[in-house]
Computed example of a mutant assay.
Amino acid sequence: MIRRLTKHDHDQLFSFLQKEPSFNLFIIGDIESFGYDTDFQEIWGELDETGNLKAVLLRYYNSFIPYAQGDFDVEGFATLIQQTNVFPFILSGKSSIVERFEQWLTLGNKRVMYFCECDTDEYANEYANQMDYSIEIKKATLEDVDRIIKLRQRIAEFATVPRTRESLAKSLETKTGRTYYIEQDGNMVASASTTAENSLSAMIVGVCTDEAHRQKGYASAIMTKLIQDLISEGKTLCLFYDNPQAGSIYKRLGFRDIGTWTMYL
């Protein structure tokens, strides 16, 4: 049976999601932030004959994320997505789960990324001991949003869209994200952000350095600060990457691959 979940299902739902908290950080973060009674967010669950959760599906605006522990009613969830009449939509999630929808839905462009996590500051602390302490790392405020966007726009690898600014500002306002940065001569030259921060984890996004200031260790210094701060708060850090060279940098700081994440855009 598939039905919409409510606050009365919260304890069972979170127990289910915490079996793989990193893969479920978006679902956990959205529920903690927005609950069960908004018009832009819904969560459904498939329950077995004894009332135990087998699978869940989150809708956040036009984005859908499924999660399951084993076999589940893929066709039933696919029908739900179609019945919401939200088009176009984004479908994303743990690859082994979300790719089962390919036979039931007409999906957008497929992108598969490595998914990794960091739950220790051991390697970050080792790196910090070797850092140039003349590098000052600052924490961004709402007043810095436009500077962060301008930095990203100067970098060819980054694609910024109109909603990028809105999302960044919202994450700072709601404290579901933070940004650390380095500046030289008053100009922001490197930054990294978190998003979807919740009580258990946070996603690292927007790691970037101005081309004129690369090979100086700025990105690694900012990542080190993020790792130290978030680990001290009891949170696991997660990130996506599809560039093996970038992945090797993250792994030196304690990240490890735990699977892949697929998005259909």
Rank of each mutant, 00 (worst) to 15 (best):
K7S: 12
F14V: 06
S15W: 01
F23A: 13
F23S: 12
N24V: 03
I28E: 03
I28V: 13
I31Y: 05
S33L: 15
F34K: 07
G35N: 08
G35F: 06
D39M: 14
E42M: 13
E42N: 14
D48K: 05
T50A: 12
T50D: 12
G51Y: 00
G51L: 07
N52S: 13
I65H: 01
A68H: 00
G70T: 02
G70N: 13
G70E: 09
F72W: 03
V74S: 10
E75V: 09
G76Y: 03
T84N: 09
F89I: 02
I97C: 12
F101V: 09
F101P: 03
L105Q: 02
T106P: 09
T106A: 13
V112K: 12
V112N: 12
F115N: 06
E117R: 08
T120N: 12
T120R: 00
A128P: 01
Q130Y: 04
D132R: 08
I135Q: 09
I135H: 02
K138R: 15
K139D: 04
D146F: 06
K150P: 03
K150H: 14
Q153A: 12
V161G: 08
V161M: 13
P162A: 10
S171N: 10
S171C: 09
K175E: 14
K175T: 06
Y180W: 15
I182K: 05
S191Y: 01
S193D: 04
E197K: 10
S199I: 07
L200Y: 15
M203Q: 13
T209I: 00
D210A: 13
E211S: 14
H213V: 00
I222Q: 07
K225W: 03
D229A: 11
S232T: 07
G234S: 07
G234T: 02
L239D: 02
K251A: 11
F255C: 03
D257I: 11
M263R: 10
L265I: 12
